[in-house]
Design a protein around this nucleic acid. Structure first.
Lengths: 340, 340
DNA sequence: TTGAAAGCGCTACCAT
DNA sequence: ATGGTAGCGCTTTCAA
């Protein structure tokens, strides 16, 4: 069927080894022989068999990527970023979707290891950020890099965004616009939600800006909860003049609620989200947001993982924080009619 | 390091073969022996080595998925649909991103075949839909299923949506709303663009509704071109009362242009898109659309591919057309003030 | 510069 | 019911 080294060897009357070395440009093969081998290989359409090579070399050049949801553009972009570094180096990416389920995640990781991937990049779906599965993983000598979510107390390779910095950046941006009654539509009780809230509070404190308790309203992570939360916020007196929303869907819901109430964005209320999901500039009012630099997270994780794979000794766990950046669009444009 | 069958065998004083058969529940192993083997395997944390197994069985249980863009939610959903069928059967998915580039695509396919994937699911990025690469692929006995795009004149396994049906469905929906001046923001000169246009024209003809030439305006595939195209359409007399847009981004742009002109959606102009990208209900006016059932496309392609892989003889190429469905949201709601 | 031998961890086939 | 032999296609090691 498909051509093998053995075929090339017998065609040319040389040994298998000569072919193997010639194909890999091993130095101790005469130029003449190498040329002959390469020529015959091309004629036969020879393609090396990675499975056999993997077995012999104990190296598959495959990297597993475990993410909670491919549909979420954040993870899709992490995947793209990782691929952009891995593929040029000859690695293939094997993607597993854990569906935000910790057990599925564990199964997927086991399956990938059984396939002998050289390493793993994992955006863990462990709900409360359980560290124990990853301690065991490290004990098993598997190479892996966590992205986005780092279970507290775990010393492992990690690349992600600092959520407090996200909260600070967004809030700071609103302050710089001249807004002083800044509200927050906060997210769920997980690391990202809490972190962003902390960042928000810290800036208000630093800037000596009051934050009445009713100015922090809980939303989940969807646009419908954003809509409801914003309606609640619109009943607060005095009305906030700016809102930092937990993420972009929440912000989108908030924009709709504001417009429905007959108010202007950003004239009456400026709104900023987080995540820079790719529809952000398709909304009726294009949405300012904090970009988590997910492509860069993927790239960095890939680099880090390759270092781990190539290294003979286990590397000391390294945590890399990628700096997010503000993306200014219409929803926080500085264009109030009367700017006090 | 990791436990092998050999280890279990020597621990138990049985042969390697006994272990191999016991682990695979081969019938001719005594219950007692099997229990002992299984027990020891568990103790040692034995995990079968897929690489070795693949080499011996000539079967990797990996399926390659080649798509033009992971970030596009259509393809991400196809991937999810395929995974939902493949993973329960023990297959792993290896994803390759061709970046809408035909050469990259060819390289990726070659790389996946070198890794001896059992089959491929391909959303081809061949620009003009060149069939030749796939004829060669078929000649090489590789099993593959094309999705979304089928090069004309190619007889291969295929799963996708009929674009003419999409055009018909969208237009028919607008007709049923009572609209009679129906415009079309058409897409590029590729299969999808042309097919949807054909479907649109066919319904107008069947329904004996006139379609002045200026009522078909060319947009590319983005929201900015949709915005521009719609502005052009708004200068047509008499004004259209409904628009079928090539895809959702174009429709989103069209909505913005319409609102900016001081007109109401759907009161003055009803607008429908296609693709059901997941932000469609986050727009200022939630967008009606044609859902291409991408999850189902992925599932069906996976099923078809597994049939090909399992079959000893090459199966006769089969083309499956998935029925799209109308998703009605605000942008085509039947709520005109005066309905004639 | 070339090649023979051994082995990677597993399975298929055929004896016993 | 159990096990020996012979691979799968490649690489590593060492000898010629």
């Amino acid at each position: 069927m498909a051509a093998r080294m053995k075929d090339i060897a017998s065609d040319l009357g040389v040994s298998l080894m000569t072919v193997s070395k010639a194909l890999r440009n091993h130095s101790d093969i005469s130029e003449v022989t190498r040329k002959r081998v390469l020529k015959r290989a091309r004629e036969l359409g020879y393609q090396p068999d990675f499975v056999a090579r993997s077995l012999a070399m104990r190296r598959t050049y495959m990297v597993g990527l475990v993410i909670p949801d491919l549909m979420h553009s954040f993870f899709a972009e992490v995947a793209k970023g990782a691929a952009s570094r891995l593929e040029p180096q000859g690695y293939q990416i094997v993607i597993s979707n854990s569906e935000e389920n910790a057990e599925t995640e564990a199964r997927q990781i086991a399956a990938l290891l059984a396939r002998k991937v050289d390493g793993l990049i994992i955006a863990s779906a462990q709900p409360t950020g359980r560290a124990e599965p990853f301690r065991r993983l490290r004990a098993s000598k598997a190479k892996f890099v966590l992205v986005d979510r780092l279970p507290p107390g775990l010393n492992a390779h990690y690349v992600g965004c600092d959520d407090e910095v996200i909260g600070e950046m967004a809030t700071e941006h609103l302050v710089k616009l001249g807004r002083r009654r800044i509200a927050h539509l906060r997210g769920p009780e997980i690391r990202t939600g809490v972190g962003r809230l902390q960042g928000y509070l810290r800036v208000l404190e630093r800037r000596k800006i009051g934050a009445p308790a009713q100015c922090v309203v809980r939303a989940a992570a969807s646009d419908s909860t954003g809509y409801e939360a914003m309606r609640q916020l619109l009943r607060v007196e005095p009305l906030p003049d700016a809102v930092f929303a937990y993420n972009d869907p929440v912000a989108a819901g908030a924009i709709r609620a504001t417009l429905d109430a007959g108010l202007g964005v950003p004239d009456d209320i400026a709104i900023i989200g987080s995540g820079n999901v790719h529809y952000s500039d398709l909304l009726r009012v294009p949405l300012s947001t904090i970009d988590q630099n997910s492509h860069c997270i993927g790239e960095t994780a890939a680099e880090l993982l390759m270092k781990c794979i190539e290294s003979k000794v286990p590397l000391k766990p390294e945590q890399v924080f990628i700096t997010p950046r503000v993306v200014v669009r219409e929803s926080t444009r500085r264009n109030r009619v009367s700017d006090d």
